[in-house]
Every structure is written in C-alpha cells, then in structure tokens.
Simulated assay, not measured.
Amino acid sequence: MAPLLSRGPRTVVVTGASGGVGRATARAFAARGDRVALLARGREGLAAAADDVREAGGTALVVPVDVSDAKAVDDAAQQVADAFGTIDVWVNCAFTGVFARFEDVEADEYRRVTEVTYLGYVFGTRAALRHMLPRDRGTIVQVGSALAYRGIPLQSAYCGAKHAIQGFNESLRCELLHDGSGVRTTMVQLPAVNTPQFDWVLSRMPGKARPVAPVYQPELAARAVVHAASHARRREYWVGGSTAATLIANAVAPGLLDRYLARTGFDSQHDEGEQGGTVNLWAPADGPHGRDFGAHGRFDDEAVDHSPQDWLSRNRARLGTALTVGAGLVAARGLTRLVRS
C-alpha cells in the first residue's frame, strides 16, 4: 500500500499558476501552509500569485517557464527540489487554446496548442516522476475537463489535447499499479469555469468567446484539486453537475449529443462585442506591458462557487458508509420487531 501524503506542509508544484484555475489552486494549497512552486510564463501574474500564496499562509517560489519546453520543465523541477528538498505534489494545469472552426486553425496554431496543453502535461509528469519515483511517493494531479471525453465545436485543438491527456494518464496509471509504485496519479475533470482565458485565447469567432453555461468559479475547481492530491487512490474526480451530466449523456447517447451540440454549441460559446486584442498563444498575456489577470474572468455575475455534485464526489466514501450504517439500522429494527412478534 502506498504511503499517505503528509498532513503537514508539502511541496506543491502548480503549472499555469499565473491565472485562472492554476492561480486559485496555488492559493488553496497555500491555505494549508504548503510550499508552492509557481510555474508559468507571465511574470506579472507569477509575482501576483506569489503574493497570494504568502497572504494565504504558504511559502512561494516563482519559476518562469514555458511548459512546452521539456528541458526547461526538467530544470524547473530541479530548481524546486533544490529550494524545498522534495516534490510531494505536482499539478498540471497550464494550457492554451483557439476558438475557431477546425478549418480556420492554422497548422502552427494547432501544433502550439498541442505542445502546451498536451505535451506540457507529459513533460511536467516526466519531471515529477524523476523526483518521486526514487522516493516511492508523491502525487500527480492532471487538471482535465469534461472535454477530455466529449468534444465540442470550435475547440477542436483543446478537446484533442484533453482527450490525449486522458489516454496518456490512464496508461501511466496502469504502469504505476503494475510496478506497485507508491506514486499516484489522478485526474480532475472540470466544468466550464470563470477564468480569464476567454479574454486572452486566440479567437476567430464573430463575438467574444465565453464558457458554455453553467459556469463555476475557479475556487470550486481548486478545492477539488487539493482534495484529489490527498486522495489520489481514486483514479478520477468529476466536478460540477454539468460535468457529470455531460459525461453520462456522452456514454449513453453520444450520437444524440453530437446533434444537440451541433445546434447549440456555436451560439453558446460567444457573447456580443469585439474580442480583446490580448492573445496568449505565443506569448504570455500579462507581459511585458500587460497586467495581472488574476483567477477570475468576466463572468462573476453568473458563476457559482458550489456544487452538490462536487460535495458528493469528494465525500462518496463517507456517504456510502452512512448509507450502509443506515441500512443496517433499518434491518436491525426490522429484525427486532420480528423477534418481538
């Protein structure tokens, strides 16, 4: 049986930590008192994220890196190990995307999305394993999406990368189980989240890009990631009722879902108005003369920070025990009545 992660301060690496879900996740780990290494390209966002970590009670280490560069990611991991001694948790969260019809995405743009969003996870996982396998302990959390199972229109590059992460992670998990390794890997499948990505992705849509409703706050995603890091024997977590509904519908009636998304998937992903001029595909959105975008996007008015499904997902073992105990009590009462009669 794999040793459990310490309940005390841990060393946690978060890629994509300068904004969005990665930023909220770094803050959530810091609230535990963890040492948090912040990996991303944007220096403005990284500096602000480090302030967030310190304010939340953690220790911050800023490591600027492009996750599509395998050697740079290896060097970043070594820098973290040199500073903090170990790497206990590695969270892969960095990504980029293009909102456009497939035929409107250039080959180099498609390659770039794949290198960051898919290979960035591969390179991060390899770097983490180099430090975790010799110790026979550690956890790798892959931040995924409902789109890892269910592709939608206008995001073919991103959906393809998330599908690839799902397959690669399953393969790695099988290998670790075969070896009896104490290193764990798990995946957290997210719903639509209110992050700044919709203002900085490359878009060729007629209006502003937006997430498909319902929209959740990044703190909900962050709580799920922190929970998964401490409960990584479970292979996967679904976050949000929309994620559960989408994945179940796709498993039961994928053809019907194809037709539904063909009718609704275009209009549901754009708002009125002009898309902003900031694009983070080739360079960070926050520099050199940019700004810190933070964790939240422009959808605070509609986003929610809780989900009954998320609570059930994180507490299903406790719920199962309660149901078992309840069933036992009912059965015992019935037996008592039968004996008395």
Rank of each mutant, 00 (worst) to 15 (best):
P218T: 06
R204N: 10
Q275P: 15
G255T: 04
T246Y: 03
G207D: 08
V225K: 01
P211W: 05
M205I: 11
A222G: 09
A209D: 04
I248Q: 03
S268K: 10
R259C: 00
V212F: 14
V225F: 06
G241W: 12
L220D: 02
R210H: 05
Y260F: 15
L202I: 03
E219D: 15
W238E: 07
R223P: 06
Y260A: 15
A262I: 04
A213N: 08
V226E: 01
P206K: 04
A222Q: 06
L257A: 07
P214G: 11
Q197H: 09
D199M: 13
P196Y: 07
F266H: 14
G273S: 05
S268H: 09
R233T: 13
L257Y: 00
A221M: 07
A228H: 07
H231A: 11
R263Y: 11
Q275W: 07
S203Y: 09
G207W: 02
A221H: 05
L257H: 00
S230G: 12
E236C: 06
H270Q: 12
R234H: 14
E219M: 01
A253W: 10
V215T: 12
E219F: 00
V252W: 05
A232P: 02
A244F: 13
E219G: 04
V215A: 07
S268P: 01
P214T: 05
A221R: 01
A232I: 04
D258M: 05
R263I: 10
R223E: 15
L202F: 01
A249C: 09
P196T: 02
L220V: 08
P211E: 06
E274M: 09
K208Y: 09
G255F: 02
P218F: 11
E219P: 02
A224Q: 04
E236P: 00
G273R: 05
E274K: 11
E236I: 07
W200D: 03
V212W: 10
D267S: 13
R263E: 11
L202K: 13
F266V: 12
T246D: 11
V212E: 10
N250L: 01
A221E: 03
S203F: 08
A251W: 11
A224T: 06
F198I: 05
A221L: 07
H227F: 15
V252K: 00
E236R: 15
R210C: 12
E236Q: 14
F198C: 02
A209N: 06
R235Y: 11
Q275Y: 06
A253L: 13
Q217P: 02
W200Y: 12
A262K: 06
F266D: 02
G265E: 07
G207M: 08
A213L: 11
Q275M: 14
R234V: 10
A244K: 12
E274A: 14
H270I: 11
F198G: 00
D267W: 11
E272I: 09
A262N: 01
V225P: 01
N250D: 14
G241Q: 08
Y260R: 06
P214A: 08
P206Q: 07
V212G: 02
S268I: 02
A221I: 03
A209L: 13
K208S: 06
E272M: 04
R259N: 01
L247N: 14
L256D: 00
A224K: 04
A245G: 03
A221S: 15
G273Y: 09
E219S: 12
R259M: 01
L256V: 01
I248W: 13
R204P: 05
T246H: 05
G273A: 09
V226F: 09
V215H: 02
A213M: 12
G265D: 07
A253G: 03
L257T: 10
M205Y: 07
A245N: 01
